[in-house]
Design a protein around this nucleic acid. Structure first.
Length: 946
RNA sequence: GAAGGUGUAGCUCAGUGGUAGAGCGCCUGCUUUACACGCAGGAUGUCAUAGGUUCAAGUCCUAUCAUCUUCACCA
């Protein structure tokens, strides 16, 4: 007996070594190198399984959502790798236009550098520099989680190849008329000074508090008549071109065709009629400001008005407003305008109002509608394409289909130009004089020839334009390279629900358009991670859980830091809570514990609630259990050569077969769930197999044989334990790769040549490349074994419960007698091993098998089971009153049940209409229960004179 | 305004028309040859509400309520 492995699992050390080993051995490689060289002959013939990682932003830091999503992907990748597929997981990052530009701008700001002064070229250089330095942090963090990506193929959306894909895509869509330029009202972020797509604008439910100002517009040609217009944005009145009323609005009929004076100015604007106006809203008069509202823009167009843009890019007022307001910020201008309107008695009233406001999802600034020339993608035909081919795509869970459809069916054209510097510059050139536009994948010859006559478009493309090509471009598209030919379309996409529109939909129609196929077969939408109180995790709330803290631990002060920085209203409470739960900080739990916890909590619902302590309760506890089970096994595996020639194959017992059977059933379930992308039961399956079946029952049972005098017994138990454990490691590796690899390594230390392994020795040095156990339908013999073992468990539990009821100390052995009432019990008890196991686990002194009741000694407590009767000699502990109570309780239970079954059986409809086998089963149950009731009553009588 | 999700044990969640389940927490007893991050036992339910379908409903249908999410929003 020897202590092979340390009592505590030192994962931080182990995880790093193991990851390095996997890398050194090329375990994450696909069967082919990117240049087409074969790296693995066998896998080169296998089916492929490919995932293109959802590329995190280069500015990103790993958060729990990433942790979950990448755990899922790594689990799938490892599972498929172990199933023999040629797997490829392509990692990479996204250049994240606006986000990155903001970060670098801030950094330069701190160095006292104004980005506008240094100019575009220099700024972009700084961004690249920043990217080289900090852009791969998140990829390193993925390594800490154990992700088995093919790092040689790491891609970045701004890489040369990927940029070429972007240009090709732009050119193709342009040539087909699917990309066009137009002057339109777009969502404008005054902070980042760029246009945004509709999807990049967020609105708060119910609006935000604001005012509705009722402004009086004096009607020209009258003394004291006004049209009163209700507006939430008085500062935009300088851009008004007309006042509109409903053509059938009796109040205003007489004014149609007349003019009003625009307050605060001398300008006169007409009063027009348009049935777009809602008579019931406000005063029924609508100010028309075409340059600053999309509806007004359309309405203005219909009536032939020229829009007046009154704002600069940063939402300050421009020269089209009266001098007093020029240069003012929009809100300052609003205050001034309201003040002046009041002074001039042109403000009828001011009321509180909830205003629906759009905000930039990046800067959170209130969006300004701005009229500008932008590039758009025409969406109708692309959306139609995706909808028509939808049957070729498997989205899981299925309910997300509806969300996706809804978006595709209500789609508007996609504004793809952004007025920033960091990104793919639009490949369009304008002739400085003629205005001719050239769109080309590379700089056109005409431009090369006469560079002075042309200028390239300044705008860059929306980040999502390049992301839309990700599964193709990472594999070499537009070239049909060897990678592209072999690994495209990819197999699976796993992602978060909030980018179904931004990303998934756009990838879909891109691949359909260019390659006539979806870019993957399956889309898995993972649940959203919420904090313990059901709120989304965010930096601003300070309620996020840092995956690196879970993996590597943190001091108390570090745990408090996010809360301190966010300063939520209940900051004191939160800090106190942290101090109370983790007074000594958070002890590292390791990557496996985090991964298992996340998957264990991965329910069928849309969200997962997580608090830091569940990583202890679920993940760390489970890893410790597994580690300790391994310690136990290793302690008992002696490597005595003397027993090597012992033939144990004939001595495999029922419990060994039972354990193998349980492993088989778990294997089937795991494989089934993996294939269905149903991960909600994984945690439970592993818990039951490893904790309940293996540790609580099987290992306990094996203890007797492991300490046996008989070498054959010893060797058999060792063989069965070690092979069962090896299977468990194989099954568990995709979820907990590090600990299983570490234990696999220890297991191999036993020696794969050792006869101990029998026919079932490991095939691979590294677990990562070992074969995942195969599915197999359970045969009838296995079902019999399992039924028998269930009976064994029932008997043991009955006796244990009795012992607990009577508080019989573990040291006090008691004698038992048992009558088998059916074949199942008979075959169980006739097996010597099982008989002995019952005695051991139930902590009996003996268990004598008898034929009938007369053989048992008197004064016994009787335990009834459906297939046997057990008599336990505990007369010295028996409390007659208590026993009668126990029996009474049981009687009541059975009577209640009999009543319900009888009711059913007395119902003629049930007999006639229910399936015959169900009626039969009910009858059998009723019969059994009645017999049990008789017996219980009989016992009760007996006990009266115990 | 529209769509979707969720309401089951104190908490987090499984549940396939046929006697309501797990983990955690709680209670009781245990230094039973790995593990107290453990072992054994136990208690705990108007399956949101009201109807309907069915021999039989936590499960299927309808409505209501609560709650979360997404989309669209008229000045």
């Amino acid at each position: 007996m020897s202590e092979v492995i340390p009592p505590r699992y030192n994962f931080s050390e182990v995880e790093e070594q193991i990851y390095k080993k996997w890398l050194d051995e090329g375990c994450f490689d696909a069967a082919f190198a990117p240049d087409g060289t074969v790296l693995d002959e066998e896998r080169a013939k296998a089916e492929t399984y490919t995932i293109a990682i959802p590329p995190p932003n280069v500015t990103g830091r790993l958060h729990m959502g990433h942790a979950l999503n990448n755990t899922i992907q790594d689990m799938l990748i490892r599972y498929k790798r172990m199933c023999g597929f040629d797997v490829l997981w392509i990692p990479g990052t996204d250049h994240a236009g606006i986000a990155t530009q903001t970060v670098v701008k801030k950094m330069l700001d701190q160095q006292g550098i104004d980005y506008r002064e240094i100019g575009r070229e220099k700024f972009v250089e700084y961004v690249w520099e920043w990217k080289e330095k900090y852009g791969n942090v998140i990829l390193d963090q993925l390594r800490k989680m154990g992700c088995s990506c093919n790092w040689e193929r790491t891609r970045f959306t701004m890489d040369e190849g990927l940029s070429r894909a972007v240009n090709r895509s732009f050119k193709k869509l342009y040539d087909e008329g699917l990309i066009y330029q137009g002057t339109r009202i777009v969502n404008w972020c005054p902070v980042d000074r760029t246009a945004l797509s509709d999807d990049e604008v967020e609105t708060k439910e119910g609006g935000e508090s604001g005012h509705l100002w009722h402004i009086k517009y004096p009607v020209i040609g009258t003394e004291d008549e006004f049209l009163i217009v209700a507006t939430t944005r008085p500062e935009t009145l300088f851009g008004d071109v007309a006042i509109a009323v409903h053509p059938e609005d009796e109040r205003y009929q007489k004014y149609i065709g007349k003019k009003v004076r625009l307050p605060l100015t001398e300008r006169e604007i007409p009063i027009i009629a348009d049935d777009y106006v809602d008579k019931a809203f406000g005063t029924g008069c609508l100010k028309i400001t075409p340059a600053h509202d999309p509806n007004d823009f359309e309405l203005g167009n219909r009536h032939g008005f020229e829009p007046i843009n009154i704002m600069n890019e940063d939402a300050t007022m421009n020269d089209f407003v009266p001098e007093a307001y020029r240069g003012l910020d929009r809100y300052k201008c609003r205050r001034e305008a309201v003040k002046n309107l009041k002074e001039q008695e042109l403000l009828d009233k001011e009321q509180k109002y909830k205003v629906p406001l759009g905000r930039s999802y990046r800067s959170k600034a209130v969006i300004e509608y701005r009229l500008s020339k932008q590039w758009f993608v025409k969406m109708e035909s692309l959306a139609k394409l995706a909808l028509e081919r939808h049957s070729e795509l498997n989205i899981q869970p299925e309910r997300w289909n509806k969300v996706y459809f809804h978006w595709l069916n209500n789609i508007r054209d996609w504004c793809i130009s952004r007025q920033i510097w960091w990104g793919h510059r639009i490949p369009a050139w304008y002739h400085k004089e003629t205005g001719e536009v050239l769109v080309s994948e590379e700089t056109p010859q005409q431009v090369m020839d006469k560079p002075d006559e042309w200028r390239q478009e300044d705008d860059v493309l929306d980040t999502w334009f390049s992301s839309a090509l990700w599964p193709m471009s990472t594999l070499g598209w537009p070239d049909h390279s060897s990678d592209f030919k072999r690994y495209f379309p990819t197999t699976t996409l796993s992602t978060a629900k909030d980018i179904i529109f931004f990303w998934v939909a756009r990838m879909n129609f891109s691949a359909l358009k260019f390659e006539d196929t979806f870019p993957y077969e399956n889309v898995y939408i993972h649940p959203t991670i919420l904090d313990g109180r059901g709120e989304t995790m965010s930096k601003s709330k300070g309620n996020g859980i840092d995956p690196l803290v879970v993996i590597g631990g943190a001091e108390l002060d570090d745990l408090k830091k996010p809360v301190m920085e966010a300063r939520p209203t209940d900051i004191k409470q939160r800090l106190k809570q942290i101090e109370k739960t983790f007074p000594d900080g958070f002890e590292a739990a390791g990557a496996d514990a985090m991964r298992y916890t996340l998957l264990h909590q991965c329910s069928t619902g849309q969200e997962i609630r997580l608090s830091l302590d569940v990583f202890y309760d679920i993940g760390r506890r489970f890893m410790t259990k597994l580690w300790n089970a391994a310690r136990f096994i290793f302690m008992y595996i002696d490597q005595e050569q003397s027993t090597d020639n012992v033939d144990f194959s004939a001595h495999i017992s029922d419990e060994d077969l039972w354990m193998q059977g349980k492993i088989q059933l778990a294997t089937n379930k795991l494989r089934e769930n993996m294939e269905k992308y149903d991960f909600s039961h994984l945690g439970e399956i592993y818990y039951q197999l490893i904790w309940n079946d293996f540790c609580d029952w099987y290992v306990e049972l094996c203890k007797a044989r492991l300490t046996s005098e008989d070498a054959v017994q010893r060797k058999t138990a060792q063989h069965c334990l070690i092979t069962a454990f090896a299977d468990i490691l194989r099954l568990f590796h995709p979820i907990a790769p590090f600990i299983t690899e570490e234990l696999w390594n220890k297991l191999l230390g036993v020696g794969t040549e050792s006869k101990l392994w029998g026919e079932r020795r490991p095939q691979s040095e590294l677990l990562i490349t070992e074969k995942f156990p195969e599915s197999k339908e359970p045969g009838s013999s296995l079902q019999k074994i399992i039924a028998k073992f269930n009976k064994l468990q029932d008997i043991v539990t009955l006796v244990r419960t009795l012992r607990a009821d009577y508080s019989i100390k573990p040291g006090q052995k008691i004698r038992g007698y048992i009558i088998a009432k059916n074949e199942l019990a008979k075959s169980l008890l006739s097996d010597k091993e099982s008989h002995r196991s019952i005695i051991r686990l139930a902590n009996l002194e003996s268990l004598e098998i008898i034929e009938n009741e007369e053989e048992k000694p008197s004064k016994m407590v009787t335990l009834l089971d459906s297939s046997c009767e057990i008599y336990v000699d505990i007369h010295e502990f028996v409390d007659v009153k208590k026993e009668l109570e126990r029996l009474q309780k049981e009687i009541e239970q059975v009577e209640k049940y009999i009543a319900s079954v009888t009711k059913k059986l007395d119902n003629r409809n049930f007999i006639e209409r229910a399936k015959p086998e169900i009626v039969a089963a009910e009858r059998a149950k009723a019969q059994e229960s009645k017999e049990k009731l008789d017996k219980l009553k009989h016992l009760q009588e007996q006990f009266a004179d115990f």
